[in-house]
Structure formats: C-alpha cells, structure tokens
C-alpha cells in the first residue's frame, strides 16, 4: 500500500496530528477531502468564483500556519470553515471601504424597500423538488446585498447565533437582527418572483 493510499484511509484527526508535525502530504489529503466545502463557503459569501478560489486557498495556507492553534474543540473542517469565513469578511470590509456611501448602503440597516413589502403567506417554495429549490435559493442569495447575504449565510448555513455573528461581522447584535430581518423579507419576495417567473 502506498503512503498516499494509507493517508486516504486515515481519519481527519490523525491527518491533523501528522500535519501538526510538519507532514505536508497529510495536509494535502485534508485539502483534497474538504476543498469543495471550503470553496463553497467562500463562494456563497463572495459570489465570485475567482475571489472564492483565492480566498479558499488563502484559508488553507493560514490553516497550515495556525495548525498549532487547533486543539480539536471542533472538527477540523469546522475550524477551517471559520478561517475562510473570517477571510471573506475581511475581504468584504475592503469592498465596503472602496464602495461609496450610497442610499442602498444606508438602506441595509433601515430596511429600504423591504419595509414596505407585503407579507408573503403562501409558501413560494412549497412542492419544489430539492434540486430546484436549491437553485432558486442560490439565485435569490445572489441578488441580496453583501451584508444581507453574509448574515443569512452565517445564520442559516453556519447556524451561528446573533452574538457570534455580531462578533465576526464586527457590529452590534441589533444590526445583525435588523440585517437578518430585512434579508429574510427580501429573500421571501425574491422567491415569490422566481416562482412567478417559472410558472409563466
């Protein structure tokens, strides 16, 4: 059995231990196993394939450099996901600094048009096949503002609590609640729009 075959059969926890001792081939196996998940998280936040590729690779480099700080409190992939999330948030802060203050930006917290949208009571995703549902959610997420999308990804996909999101996004819990609220309202409206589009 070759060395690589042996590594492909090892548990993450053992590969991490070898990596912590400087075994780069063990780390390569970890990258091979979890690269899709780390890339997917970066893509869901950035909605840009090139940026997601760069940030996911940067996350793996940071992961390697900080392996000594990993004590197994969470799974390795959860730990790596946190690293890529932090890199994406840093990147989005840079975007925000570059972006001129606009009415849209101010609307992020105050709700903008979402404040006046009628409530959607009929479930716009009812009866959808899972693949189709995922596609529609993806399309709707792509249309949210960066801040709204970020808070949705962290809350719904990463299942982080308000205070944890606030810490990571470097804002108040009130801001998180507000962004999440308007993001959901906008999402509901987008899903209704997509349903209408598909039934026409």
């Amino acid at each position: 059995m070759s060395m690589n075959q042996a590594k492909s059969e090892m548990q993450d926890v053992d590969l991490v231990k070898l990596s912590q001792k400087g075994d780069l081939t063990a780390f390569e196996e970890l990258v091979g196993r979890h690269r899709d998940k780390i890339f997917a998280r970066a893509f869901s936040m950035m909605r840009n394939e090139e940026e997601a590729l760069d940030l996911s690779q940067e996350a793996w480099i940071k992961g390697w450099q900080r392996l000594a700080q990993f004590h197994g409190d969470s799974s390795f992939v959860t730990w790596m996901t946190r690293i890529v999330i932090n890199l994406c948030l840093d990147q989005l802060r840079k975007h925000k600094r570059q972006r001129a203050e606009s009415i849209e930006a101010m609307d992020e917290e105050s709700g903008g048009v979402e404040r006046h949208m009628p409530v959607v009571i009929t479930n716009p995703t009812e009866g959808l096949e899972r693949g189709e549902l995922r596609k529609r959610i993806d399309r709707a997420l792509a249309q949210l503002s960066e801040e709204h999308r970020m808070v949705m990804v962290l809350h719904e996909f990463e299942e982080l609590e308000y205070k944890e999101i606030a810490k990571r996004m470097d804002c108040s819990i009130g801001t998180v609640m507000s962004r999440l609220f308007y993001a959901r309202r906008r999402m509901a409206s987008l899903l209704v729009g997509l349903k209408r589009e598909n039934s026409e």
Binding site: F39, K135, R184
Partner: peptide, 19 residues
C-alpha cells in the same frame, strides 16, 4: 409565517459546489 417559511426553506438547501 413568512419569516418561518424563509428560514426553513434555506436550512440544508445550500448548493453543492465543487472547486
């Protein structure tokens, strides 16, 4: 109802993406 539906539609329904 709207908030609950949106929340439950998202849970577990993230696109599977590959590098």
């Amino acid at each position: 109802t709207e908030l609950r539906q949106t929340k439950s539609a998202l849970v577990g329904n993230e696109m599977d993406l590959k590098v």
